Simulated scan of single mutants.
Amino acid sequence: MLTTLNHETLQALRDNSARESVELDFKSDFNADNTDHRRGLIEDVCAMANARGGWLLLGVAEDPDGAIAGLPGIQFANADGFRLRIGQMIEGGLEPRLAGVRIECVPADGGRWIAGIRVPQSWTGPHRTAGGRRFMVRADARNTEYDMHGLRQAFTARDQATRAWETFRDDRIARYYAGRLPLPIQPGPAALIHLHPLGATTPVDMASATAAPEFAPPENDGRAAQPNFDGVIRKGHGGEAGWLTYVQVFHRGVLEAFRMLDPQIGGNPGLVLPWLQRDATGLLPRWLAGLQRHGVAGPYEFAITLVGVRGQRPLQDARGHPAWGVATQEDTLALPAWFIDPVEFDGAQSNALLEELRVQLHRAFGRDGIQSRFFELQ
């Protein structure tokens, strides 16, 4: 499937006589002031979101067999205004709202444009059109309306994916408290970092995962990987007395990182959140690249859970500087999970995710999070 839209990708589609499919739809004409055109666009976006996601290309003509026949483009005044209007149209046209839509515009001949609407597969649906209350879904190269049986299955599939992720996370938290994580760990507060595929996956080749640099934990120092019942464990920092870091690669593509957060310096216990910042920003892009390379398609849930943190306060840094904020009264801080579409994820979204995480952590410890950079006190 397309990852971006530009002159090269459009020419490649034309050279290959690309056809409409479950993930690709063409419209030779579109006028945002035309009621029928607007309704048709919303139905197309709804249908793709309820299926596998894909691209709706405006200004692309097709032949009777559904193959590209030309790139006539469509007319609008400027790209920024068009993107804003279409984005607002989609935002108000679907129930529930659909996040992650991207709109790209490529200049065509005669001052016209090819517009591409990148529709993500949704895990917050099924969606329906706000005007006609129609639950649309894309099958092959056409849109249909869910029947009662299909609609029931769509709601069930969404709930099952959510339950599977929540059950997995709860199990890993319970294993920490029961001392049943895949390696013996040093006692104390820690973080569990998870990236969990939401869709069906094929098993990851463990021989390849054993050597994959994307799955190496921080402070790996070249330690050998160790197979276990769940997949393979990539050891980080630590030893027989207990490990401080590791990465577990599960057979079905789930990834788990463990990180101790208390440096235990000079009798001044606390949480070194900059360590968590470094791991989160370092692991996530590598993990996404590694899972894509191993055929584990997104989207994913990414989440961080602090465990064993009752009575703990964050330290300014790993050198044992004074603690800040108030001590948490909870054993576990399960921070909200982030939905990540790997096609859409870039540096800007990575920074936004990290900023949201920082704010959540500061609030957990009685700080508003405004006067500090990421997790470190200024």
Results as ranks from 00 to 15, higher is better:
residue 51 A to H: 03
residue 357 L to F: 14
residue 279 D to G: 12
residue 143 N to C: 03
residue 11 Q to R: 13
residue 83 R to C: 05
residue 359 V to G: 11
residue 230 D to Y: 12
residue 32 A to K: 00
residue 98 L to N: 07
residue 259 R to T: 01
residue 280 A to R: 12
residue 317 D to K: 01
residue 33 D to P: 02
residue 168 F to A: 06
residue 199 G to C: 09
residue 25 D to R: 03
residue 248 Q to D: 09
residue 340 I to A: 04
residue 21 S to G: 12
residue 296 V to R: 13
residue 78 N to H: 13
residue 42 I to E: 09
residue 295 G to M: 00
residue 14 R to A: 14
residue 16 N to P: 04
residue 260 M to W: 01
residue 216 A to D: 04
residue 265 I to G: 03
residue 189 P to C: 15
residue 69 A to Y: 06
residue 300 Y to S: 02
residue 280 A to Q: 10
residue 371 Q to K: 02
residue 240 E to Q: 10
residue 243 W to E: 07
residue 81 G to C: 02
residue 294 H to R: 15
residue 312 Q to I: 03
residue 370 I to W: 15
residue 259 R to H: 02
residue 369 G to P: 13
residue 89 M to H: 00
residue 284 L to S: 12
residue 40 G to A: 12
residue 183 L to S: 06
residue 198 L to V: 05
residue 41 L to P: 03
residue 203 P to Y: 05
residue 158 R to T: 07
residue 196 H to C: 10
residue 174 A to G: 12
residue 26 F to V: 11
residue 13 L to V: 04
residue 58 L to E: 03
residue 224 A to E: 13
residue 94 L to G: 11
residue 318 A to V: 03
residue 219 E to H: 01
residue 257 A to M: 14
residue 334 A to H: 09
residue 257 A to C: 15
residue 374 F to N: 14
residue 331 D to E: 13
residue 127 H to M: 14
residue 171 D to H: 08
residue 155 F to P: 07
residue 217 P to E: 03
residue 328 T to E: 02
residue 220 N to F: 02
residue 186 Q to H: 02
residue 63 D to Q: 12
residue 234 R to Q: 15
residue 329 Q to G: 12
residue 45 V to K: 05
residue 58 L to G: 10
residue 229 F to Q: 14
residue 374 F to G: 13
residue 268 N to I: 11
residue 287 W to P: 05
residue 209 A to S: 06
residue 190 A to C: 14
residue 21 S to A: 15
residue 191 A to G: 11
residue 71 L to F: 06
residue 318 A to Y: 04
residue 168 F to L: 06
residue 3 T to H: 15
residue 186 Q to C: 00
residue 281 T to R: 14
residue 325 G to W: 02
residue 291 L to F: 12
residue 75 Q to N: 07
residue 326 V to G: 02
residue 231 G to D: 04
residue 201 T to W: 06
residue 6 N to Y: 13
residue 100 G to K: 06
residue 356 E to N: 14
residue 251 H to N: 10
residue 42 I to T: 10
residue 305 T to A: 07
residue 260 M to E: 06
residue 184 P to I: 00
residue 175 R to P: 02
residue 275 W to K: 04
residue 249 V to F: 04
residue 23 E to W: 09
residue 218 P to F: 03
residue 99 A to K: 15
residue 6 N to E: 14
residue 336 P to M: 00
residue 201 T to L: 05
residue 367 R to F: 00
residue 76 F to I: 01
residue 22 V to P: 03
residue 210 T to E: 15
residue 351 N to E: 15
residue 374 F to C: 09
residue 1 M to D: 07
residue 255 L to H: 05
residue 150 G to S: 11
residue 71 L to E: 05
residue 325 G to A: 10
residue 219 E to C: 01
residue 312 Q to H: 10
residue 59 G to D: 09
residue 24 L to F: 08
residue 335 L to S: 08
residue 294 H to N: 15
residue 242 G to V: 04
residue 112 R to L: 01
residue 329 Q to P: 02
residue 11 Q to L: 14
residue 288 L to T: 05
residue 278 R to L: 01
residue 169 R to C: 15
residue 82 F to D: 05
residue 14 R to Q: 13
residue 369 G to T: 07
residue 345 F to T: 08
residue 57 L to G: 09
residue 335 L to P: 11
residue 221 D to Y: 05
residue 14 R to N: 07
residue 112 R to Q: 08
residue 39 R to Q: 05
residue 288 L to S: 08
residue 298 G to E: 08
residue 295 G to K: 00
residue 293 R to W: 08
residue 222 G to W: 03
residue 22 V to D: 13
